[in-house]
Design a protein around this nucleic acid. Structure first.
Length: 615
DNA sequence: AAAAAAT
């Protein structure tokens, strides 16, 4: 029964020949893109420039993996031979391999498999399809001591062949701005505080260095005490919602495919036993929501003592949701190594005081990075505001949906995300849409996790192209091909509005956002009008009148200053942001700033002497 | 005020 490819696998060099590597010769699934392909051949396009590319300042020697070392590892196997993460070879059996016998049978599901099956909802082109041209004029700011320079291509970064192969499989051709900056910064071991959104390639930006770092580590460090059934991840990624954790997990699995780096996700609402079992089988990167992680820590099923990488995603959101106690508990009161020992990457869309305090406590000598907003409130999203009374909202929505079908391709409903204020409202609108013949589903916190996941899948696949959602879906979720976001109920906070409309126009595609506005939203009139103006949208005259009326006395636009290009304003110095989109900011020279001392300088935020790299 | 998140 062995086919030709499995034959070649058996002949392929397998490093030390035990554990994870040798299991490839069993019933391992071989992904389509690797079939009929000599396992030892280098990828045809493997650029020469990988050779010897080390970052100029690499105190940790992360750039030191030689190309020969990489190339000795065929694409078929994980890279355990090259000091692979664990589970194989000398002294790495410690990472919870209870049931090691089971490992031999285990196979790594091909995370790219699904893409081919479920991806083409509208028969569109490439799956991750980021329109890179749209990124060319996105402003970026960095500051901090000795900021490593950005890269222009993945080839310039030495991530190792396995990771490079996965980057190709993901069809990433060119790093996004946040990746160009964050990856070199992280690879040098620096802490990072970054302002960027999920559509910007942020997940890859923190996953690549983490995976690469785990792969390159020799694992010769101190072993934790033998604790049966306790997992010792070396990286922890925290995110606010279950869906976001799932999404990060899915992405991270792709990046880590056949690298030997194991990614496990843990979140509430799902049976904990399955997650416990996954953890027992070994974990390098744990993606989790705070509540479930605390639970796991209390049960002593996870130890953080081996953590070398900590990433906090959507940190402002987590604080908004009241997770600060849990997060502080996880980061400061358990067995997590302190800042400076571990590497910490903090991502946040905004930088209010609380986040600054968190940064001061969690980060050490970090680099600050701000990337202009991608796919939210930019020119890629057409924003419309319509005056609709509460009583007219449903029929108005129906008109929109009908018009959409009429204009759509093959009478197909384009993916439409409808935001409402309350969970009840979501249920009743979903029901109403369904009984009126619109294929709708809903996602909110009162639905079971199963229902939520099903709804999301059903929406993504186009089966129910209308998704009614509360703010659980407002941030971070990357749903490809959302053509239209309807703010059926407007949020009270302009930031929430920005996040919601950011669910469309993603990855450089254009999108439409329609808001239903009435007297109940008058507090939003001013910031909404400002935001629309900033992003070159047509502001209806009636909205301007509302704005003028509601903003007598005080301005309701918080933050002010930096405008819509960046999600978080530069809280260090208002005029330090260079907002001239379209300029080439990437010409190097980031290391200008020497007046910025991260920890300790925090009394009331950043001191006024701090200058931006652009000054 | 509502939403989210551990059971």
């Amino acid at each position: 029964m062995p086919t030709s490819w499995s034959d070649s696998i058996e002949k392929a060099p397998t490093g030390d020949g035990i554990g994870a590597t040798s299991r490839a010769s069993r019933s391992s699934y071989v992904p389509p893109h690797l079939r009929n392909r000599p396992p030892t051949s280098d990828p045809p396009s493997a650029p020469v420039s990988y050779a010897g590319t080390t970052l100029g300042n690499d105190p940790h020697g992360h750039g030191g993996l030689s190309v020969g070392e990489i190339h000795s590892v065929g694409p078929r196997k994980d890279r355990s031979g090259a000091g692979g993460s664990r589970g194989v070879g000398g002294g790495s059996g410690w990472n919870n391999r209870s049931g090691g016998w089971d490992r031999g049978r285990e196979r790594e599901a091909n995370p790219f498999q699904d893409d081919a099956d479920t991806e083409p909802p509208f028969g569109e082109q490439e799956n991750t399809g980021i329109n890179f041209d749209a990124y060319d004029d996105i402003p970026v700011e960095t500051s901090g001591k000795n900021v490593p320079p950005p890269v222009n291509t993945f080839a310039e970064i030495d991530l190792g062949e396995a990771l490079n192969l996965n980057i190709k499989r993901c069809k990433y051709v060119k790093p996004t701005p946040v990746q160009r900056y964050a990856i070199p910064i992280s690879l040098t071991g620096r802490d990072l505080m970054a302002c960027a959104q999920t559509g910007s390639g942020k997940t890859a930006a923190f996953c690549f260095p983490i995976i690469s770092g785990i792969m390159k580590s020799s694992q010769s460090g101190p072993r934790p005490q033998r604790m049966p059934r306790m997992a010792f991840p070396s990286a922890l990624i925290l995110s606010p919602t279950r869906e976001l954790s799932m999404q990060i997990h899915e992405e991270a699995k792709k990046f880590a495919y056949q690298t030997g780096v194991k990614v496990v996700v843990a979140y509430g609402g799902a049976p904990i036993n399955l997650q416990l079992r996954e953890l027992e089988r070994g974990v390098d990167i744990l993606v989790a929501t705070p509540g479930r992680l605390v639970d796991l820590l209390e049960r002593a099923r996870v130890s953080l003592q081996m953590i070398r990488y900590l990433a906090l995603d959507e940190a402002d959101r987590m604080l908004d949701m009241g997770f600060e106690p849990q997060i502080r508990r996880i980061v400061q009161q358990m067995d997590m190594p302190p800042p400076g020992v571990r590497q910490t990457l903090l991502f946040s869309a905004t930088f209010p005081k609380e986040i600054q305090r968190l940064a001061a406590d969690f980060l050490s000598n970090y680099v600050f990075l701000a990337v202009g907003r991608v796919g939210s409130s930019t020119d890629l999203i057409v924003q419309r505001v319509e005056y609709v009374l509460e009583t007219d909202k449903r029929s108005h929505l129906m008109d929109l949906l009908h018009a959409q079908i009429a204009n759509g391709v093959q009478a197909k409903q384009a993916l439409t995300l409808v935001f409402v204020e309350t969970k009840k409202g979501a249920d009743s609108l979903e029901h109403w849409l369904c009984i009126n013949g619109f294929p709708a589903t809903s996602i909110h916190g009162d639905r079971t996790q199963q229902e939520r996941e099903y709804a999301l899948r059903s929406f993504k696949s186009g089966k129910t192209p209308i998704l009614v959602a509360t703010d659980v879906a407002a941030r971070g979720l990357d749903i490809p091909h959302v053509a239209h976001v309807v703010n059926f109920d407007l949020p009270n906070d302009i930031d929430d509005y920005v996040h919601r409309i950011g669910r469309t126009g993603r990855a450089g595609k254009s999108g439409l956002a329609t808001a239903f506005f009435n007297e109940n939203n008058s507090s939003l009139a001013r910031p909404l009008a400002d935001l629309m103006q900033e992003s070159n949208q047509e502001v209806p005259a009636w909205l301007s009148r509302f704005a003028a009326r509601s903003s007598f006395g005080r301005s309701s636009r918080r933050g002010g200053g930096s405008g819509g290009r960046f999600g978080g304003r530069d809280f260090r110095k208002d005029n330090s942001f260079n907002r001239g989109g379209g300029m080439d900011f990437y010409g190097g020279g980031n290391n200008v700033n020497s007046g910025y001392n991260a920890p300790g300088g925090y009394g009331g935020g950043y001191g006024p002497t701090v200058t931006s790299a652009w000054d």
